[in-house]
Design a binder for these strands. Structure first.
Length: 1069
RNA sequence: GGGCGUAUAGCUCAGCUGGUUAGAGCGCGAUCCUGAUAAGAUCGAGGUCGGUGGUUCGAGUCCACCUACGCCCA
């Protein structure tokens, strides 16, 4: 039993296809979904399947996936890891309308709701095959057991929720301003309204007098009523036809208002706007703060008409209110409020009634009384209304204005802002709890909680839930002619009302509309025609996905709150909100505990990807070329999840090369040599005492990684965890493997070699498990070979294996830190060589090295062999302050000193700079030994602690030096003939190796080497006398011949200097 | 118009509660190292840390305002 050979020229897309087959053959997904004991609850935010999956779906699905995989490896059973499909709503209807060539609701009604809804039901599955293939191919592991929002069971649960809200007085009927087309007789969606905005629409612009009433001011306003007698409020509007709907005037509470006189009359308006509106001749008599005017009553312009069935509280009408929403940008700073035609929110906030002036056909209502413009179309009534007001002395000024205004995209008629009866969920009733519950949620990125989401909750308004549409969850509200309503909470209840079996009833329109019953008191009960906002469908999924409470009561007890959800940032006002709102309203608790909120994916230029721009990246292209793992890794590591990211396949390629291939090649290296040696992991592991220091380092580093990656995952810091893993793989490959290659090559199978194998094996297996949630395919392939290949008892998939645990025995932070200093020293040594023009191949006599602290230098001592080898020196010496050939420089450790000495810092820095010679050396010694240093600064003596100083060293003469952050490497550059000779030997070896490789020889081929032109060269001959065996050994040369190579040998030329060269030939034995 | 976020090298990103010479990877140039590697190392070119002002001994970091972009809302 041994490992399968691994090709370094791997094709990840092909490998992934093979892994998919393995998972299918062994039903791994199924087993994984069923595994675990402790519950971990995940909620799937349902996408709509009526479009092709794109890159943004990849990112949200893999961020969902990675956390579930991690938890699963920790032994959790993931509840709710299933598909979910959002199937209702206007976008679906629009698609179907487009396909049928329809032009709005009348076309649909003519076509028939039953047939139309049947088309909608089909259309949501247009791309389901794409979705299924895509989901499998990116390894998003969910069960097929999807919840579907149009399902009867799902709808029944929604009814239960609605009834519960109803019972708690949280579902109510009130006006809602919609954009209404008077000609088509229908409300338009936001989307439709946006289609029909026109700029530069010519409209009237009128300034009006609202005369202060003689009496009946409320207490607050009464104080100033006397001063305001015979004055009028000035207000401005571009829609005179809304004036009969006026119920109040609004001022800005903290703005200044002026009582001004002009041409003998007294008017009230915002002080700041007086010069602009009244001109220079106006005289300000008195000023008030806006909120001082609250309650002042004024004379109505017209008698508006209440909505049918409404009773109007006269006392609340025609008074000044104060609201922050009032702007001083234009107009007079006093705003005419007509809730029926756009100011409904403010009306509700201030408890104002709603009065109408025109009907749904856009005609001025006869209820206003006998007026010259009664029965006219609202736009055409404007001049008549203006004239009427002028005749009554209420018009202050009039003109025309150009602004933007919405028109019906279908028929071009000016739209009406119109308050219609609508159904609301009273979220404001629990606003404080919404805010409180949000504080319990852990958001990634954190700022969403207080920022975007928190703000949204602070400004909460009631949720308008009804839609006058067809393809949606029918609201289960039945109403009698007299307005009596009942809310039905289940199919059983409806059956009881209807008095018959409804098991086969499709709960959608129009079928449900046909269910009526007779109420003894109120007569025939009919369903209201509205359907629910489809955000209600998805927001209710925690309940409805399980058909609770009709089914799954026990399951629901586990799954009533999600441990984790993840969607893109646009869901803060969408799904995140509706989940949160419904959970708080129904159960007083947050719906989810942790949430990752993803930024959007942009194209390479930072532009939003959209079909019209043609810059949409098809995920399949990337998956087929670079593989799902590479794409996943890129998306996990490239930037923090909450940031918008520019996508480029070049960067996916970088992930592939930088991480995937580094891991793969390390794995391949291991398998190659383990295969040659027939090495398999020993049953009882490797005894600790056989581990080399670098093995201990690798294991200490590994367990630090396990700790850090686990901690990052626990904080839902996916990117952090991935970046930790990437850093480790890099060090494993470029330090551990590179340093230890010879231990794997050597022919003796001693304990040292065993230790190397065991160490590398442990690192690879462990890191593979850590990487498994991120790159499920490659991790599986590696695991199958390294673990399953030699241990039939191991879990059959890495995704069924357990998450690695930190082994405290192996943790050694000191060793990890010391190695970091070593790596730094090695890097500096190379820099020093580079600066002196000395190749690494040329051995040097001596290296001097020091770390910033004595302890650091001691840490380096244990790596003397590594330093010698890496930097190719004969001897390593460690510097301390007793060495007198270097100069010391000092800087303050600002992090500590800055706070302590404040303004003294510049002088202190200067004083330290002055230290030199023996004074400096003494100070350096003191710092090294942990003693304090006395220094004269600004005339007084300061005692500086050893950690308040940073010591740097400068170059001794005759040495090649590099220094950074207190680490110093100094190389003795003097060359002896022996050193030169050895350098030449290594140069020769390198050239012969190159020639072997270029000639295409196998690693184990024995060869003959010809050295043409070397015969008689004293330097070369001397070198061969000392180093001939070394050269033969390294290059597997049976023979070194000092003659020109024959034609049959592969040849290269090694230049010794300008005049001399060796013609090297290699030939297989 | 409001809210939130983002802005650091040609590109993608680090930069902890303010602190020492602002870093990494990719790309570019040069050199080196290399019989696991599509890799690695060193050096170099490339930064007014979006702008202006402020607080501070000291600002990429904190504050204010502004600009551009993105998202959401109006």
């Amino acid at each position: 039993m041994t490992f399968q050979p691994v090709d370094t020229r791997v094709s990840f897309p092909q490998l992934e296809e093979r892994v998919l087959k393995l998972w299918n053959d062994h039903r791994v997904v199924e087993k994984n979904l069923a595994a675990g004991d402790r519950p971990f609850v995940f909620y799937e935010g349902p996408p709509t399947a009526n479009g092709r999956p794109g890159l943004h779906h990849v990112i949200s699905r893999i961020f969902k996936d990675v956390i579930c995989r991690y938890r699963s490896m920790q032994g959790y059973r993931i509840i709710g890891r299933r598909e979910g499909w959002d199937t209702h709503g206007l976008p679906v209807e629009i698609e179907v309308e487009k396909a049928l060539g329809f032009n709005g609701k009348p076309d649909i009604e003519k076509y028939g709701i039953a047939e139309f809804n049947a088309r909608c039901r089909e259309s949501v599955w247009n791309y389901i095959q794409d979705w299924k293939a895509f989901t499998e191919r990116i390894a998003y592991w969910v069960s097929d057991d999807a919840y579907i929002t149009y399902d009867n069971n799902y709808i029944e649960s929604l009814w239960w929720i609605l009834q519960k809200l109803w019972q708690n007085d949280l579902l109510f009927r009130d006006y809602k301003v919609t954009m209404h087309c008077p000609r088509c007789g229908t409300s338009l969606s936001d989307h439709e309204v946006n289609l029909g905005f026109q700029d530069d629409v010519d409209d009237p612009s009128v300034w009006l007098r609202f005369k202060v009433s003689a009496a009946d001011h409320t207490a607050a306003g009464a104080r100033h009523a006397a001063a305001l007698q015979h004055a009028a409020f000035l207000a401005w509007t571009t829609t005179p036809w809304t004036l009969p709907g006026n119920v109040a005037l609004a001022v800005k509470p903290d703005a200044d208002y002026a009582l001004a006189s002009i041409d003998g009359e007294r008017v009230v308006m915002a002080l700041a706007l007086v010069p602009h509106v009244l001109g220079e001749t106006a005289v300000v008599e008195q000023t008030f703060r806006g909120d001082e005017l609250v309650g002042v009553r004024y004379e109505r312009l017209f008698d508006g008409a209440p909505g049918s069935g409404d009773t109007v509280d006269e006392a609340r009408l025609y008074r000044v209110i104060a609201d922050e929403y009032v702007s001083l940008e234009d107009g007079t700073g006093i705003v005419h409020i007509a809730p029926a035609y756009g100011d409904l929110e403010i009306g509700r906030k201030h408890g104002l009634p709603t009065l109408f002036s025109v009907d749904l056909a856009g005609m001025v209502m006869p209820e206003l009384g006998d007026l010259p413009f009664t029965g006219k179309f609202f736009k055409e009534a404007d001049p008549d209304i203006t004239r009427n007001l002028k005749e009554r002395g209420l018009l202050f000024r009039s003109g025309r204005v150009k602004h933007s205004y919405p028109f019906c995209w279908r028929c071009g008629t000016a739209l009406l802002y119109y308050a219609k009866r609508s159904w609301y969920i009273r979220t404001t009733a629990k606003k404080d709890l919404l805010v409180e519950n949000n504080k319990q949620i852990a958001w990634v990125p954190e700022h969403i909680r207080e920022g975007r989401f928190g703000n949204w909750l602070e400004n909460n308004i009631d949720w308008a839930i009804s839609r006058e549409r067809y393809w949606g969850t029918p609201l289960p509200i039945w109403m009698a002619e007299d307005g009596y309503t009942e809310c039905i909470g289940s199919l059983a209840e409806l059956e009881q009302k209807a008095g018959r079996n409804l098991k086969d009833l499709d709960l959608h329109r129009p079928y449900v509309d046909a269910i009526t019953w007779e109420d003894a008191q109120h007569g025939t009960m009919r369903r209201i025609p509205d359907v629910a906002d489809c955000w209600f469908d998805s927001g209710a999924m925690p309940v409805a996905q399980w058909h609770y409470p009709m089914e799954n009561q026990e399951l629901y007890q586990l799954a009533y709150q999600a441990d984790y959800i993840c969607e893109a940032v646009d869901q803060t006002r969408g799904w995140f909100y509706t989940l949160h709102a419904l959970s708080t309203l129904l159960f007083d608790r947050p719906a989810f505990k942790n949430v990752i909120c993803l930024g959007h994916i942009l194209d390479g230029e930072g532009q939003k990807m959209s079909k019209s721009k043609g810059n949409v990246v098809n995920p399949w292209t990337v998956i087929n070329e670079q593989g799902s793992d590479a794409l996943r890794w890129y998306l996990f590591t490239a930037s923090p999840p909450g940031s918008p990211r520019r996508f480029s396949s070049a960067l996916v390629n970088e992930s592939l090369r930088k991480f995937m291939l580094t891991l793969w090649n390390t794995y391949s290296f291991f398998v190659t040599y383990a295969g040659l040696d027939g090495w398999v992991p020993p049953a009882h592991g490797v005894a600790n005492q056989h581990l080399a220091p670098i093995d201990r380092w690798a294991l200490a580093r590994l367990h630090a990684l396990v700790h850090d990656a686990t901690a990052a995952f626990e904080a839902y810091d996916v990117t952090g965890a991935a970046r930790e893993i990437e850093a480790f793989v890099d060090e494993l490959s470029n330090w551990y493997v590179r340093r230890n290659r010879r231990r794997f090559w050597k022919s003796e199978a001693d304990s040292d070699k065993q230790a190397a194998y065991a160490t590398l094996y442990t690192c690879l297996v462990t890191v593979t498990k850590l990487a498994a949630p991120f790159i499920p395919f490659a991790a599986e392939a590696i695991y199958q070979n390294l673990v399953r290949g030699v241990d039939a008892a191991a879990p059959e998939s890495v995704h069924l294996a357990r998450w690695p645990q930190v082994d405290q025995q192996l943790v050694d932070q000191q060793l990890v830190d010391d190695t970091e200093v070593l790596l730094k020293a090695v890097s500096l040594g190379r820099a020093a060589r580079k600066a002196a023009g000395l190749k690494i191949r040329q051995p040097l006599r001596q290296l001097w090295v020091r770390a910033p602290t004595a302890a650091g230098t001691d840490g380096l001592r244990r790596f003397e062999a590594e330093l010698r080898d890496e930097l190719n020196v004969k001897e390593v010496r460690f510097l301390d302050s007793s060495t007198d050939f270097i100069e010391y420089r000092f800087k303050p450790n600002l992090r500590i000193v800055g706070k302590k000495y404040g303004k003294l810092v510049p002088q202190l820095t200067a004083a330290l700079r002055e230290l030199s010679g023996d004074t400096a050396r003494n100070a350096a010694r003191a710092v090294e030994q942990g003693q304090s240093v006395w220094l004269t600064v600004g005339g007084s003596e300061l005692e500086l602690q050893h950690d308040e100083l940073l010591v740097e060293t400068s170059s001794p003469a005759g040495y090649a030096v590099a220094e950074d952050g207190g680490v110093l490497c100094a190389l003795d550059t003097a060359l002896t003939p022996e050193l030169t000779s050895e350098g030449l030997a290594r140069e020769l070896v390198r050239n012969i190796q190159d020639a072997r490789k270029e000639a295409g020889f196998a690693i184990s081929d024995r060869i003959v080497v010809y050295l043409g032109g070397a015969d008689g060269d004293a330097e070369v001959e001397a070198m061969l006398r000392s180093w001939g065996d070394y050269v033969r050994n390294e290059t597997l040369a049976e023979d070194l011949v000092l003659t020109a190579p024959p034609e049959s040998a592969y040849q290269v030329v090694l230049d010794l200097d300008d005049a001399r060269s060796i013609r090297i030939g290699v030939r297989r034995q």
